[in-house]
């Protein structure tokens, strides 16, 4: 009974209700996210090979070993950021254009909308395998079409930047529908009156978009950017299935790097250190993005 009394004393009736509402979610998060992150954090300070888990404390040496790895600094880190910016910006622009097109009625609108949502239904890993097949240098459809048009087939996936572009392209294809959905939902919840007034005034479509739609949609756009940036930063499936980080680890992203350290080179500690570094970087990025989101919300 003692504990129940302190529980009552510490929290009011409303606070207890609040805690009860989040209790199941919190329990799952602690068990399946917080504890593993803690274990990973602890492992990153130890000597922990998967085939020889000594688990002796080695301080920060795993971190220095990751941070002084030229592959990490010169390839993995820039790759991850370039990938994040390219993927988010391109799919935002295309997704916004598609949402605007779908927001007005035309014949076959429903069919077009379903087709544009197709990538959402395909597992990213399958999409990546399929794209790898399409860009195969000998049997891929892309080279066949290129050669039929008089061009020259390229060994797409064995050169760094062409392989990287194919990865970005796949990611854009996969996640554009996600932008389209969120932006379309945002467009449909905008008030109708300003648009009717603009139509009566005979305002051009571009001016309506620039001075009405865009400012009103800005909060939704920023949320989209925040969500997708965080997701793009931790992309795994697409790269893993498309290039496996190759050629010669040149298209590796942070997630792939951490996975490889742990499960290919069996160095669980170094993999964990890389994963913790990735988490810290994205936390900072996420914080900056959240401040941006807050500012936009307050502006409108």
């Amino acid at each position: 009974m003692q504990s129940k009394n302190t529980w009552r004393k510490m929290f009011g009736e409303q606070q207890r209700f609040m805690l009860m509402l989040i209790a199941p979610a919190m329990m799952l998060l602690i068990l399946f996210q917080a504890i593993p992150i803690f274990i990973g954090g602890s492992a990153s300070f130890r000597d922990w090979m998967l085939n020889d888990p000594k688990k002796t404390w080695v301080g920060l040496s795993q971190y220095t070993s990751v941070l002084s790895d030229p592959a990490f600094l010169k390839i993995v880190l820039p790759n991850t950021f370039i990938f994040m910016f390219a993927s988010v910006i391109i799919s935002l622009v295309i997704g916004l254009a598609l949402a605007l097109a779908l927001n007005r009625p035309f014949r076959g609108q429903k069919l077009v909308q379903t087709i544009l949502l197709l990538p959402l239904m395909v597992a990213p890993v399958i999409a990546a395998i399929m794209v790898r097949w399409m860009f195969n240098d000998q049997f891929g459809i892309v080279n066949v079409v290129l050669e039929a048009l008089g061009g020259e087939g390229q060994p797409w996936l064995v050169q760094r930047w062409s392989a990287f572009s194919v990865i970005v392209l796949t990611d854009v294809w996969l996640w554009t529908p996600w932008f389209t959905l969120l932006l379309l939902a945002g467009l449909q919840s905008l008030p109708k009156e300003p648009f009717e007034a603009a139509a009566i005034d005979g305002t051009t479509a571009w001016r309506v978009f620039r001075h009405l739609t865009l400012p009103m949609l800005r909060p939704v756009i920023v949320v989209c950017i925040v969500i997708r940036s965080i997701d793009a930063f931790r992309t795994f499936d697409t790269v893993w299935a498309l290039t496996g980080g190759g050629p010669a680890r040149e298209t590796e992203l942070l997630s792939i790097y951490a996975y490889e350290q742990a499960f290919v080179f069996l160095d669980f500690a170094k993999g964990s250190a890389a994963a913790i570094i990735a988490a810290l970087i994205i936390l900072v990025v996420g914080l900056v993005l959240y401040r941006l989101l807050d500012r936009v919300r307050k502006m409108s």
């Binding site: 399946f32 593993p36 992150i37 951490a258 993999g271 990735a278």
Partner: peptide
């Protein structure tokens, strides 16, 4: 918000 930011690999490996 913080846990959403943490990459999957950070907690899937452990």
């Amino acid at each position: 918000y913080a846990l959403r930011c943490v990459p999957f690999v950070t907690w899937v490996l452990p």
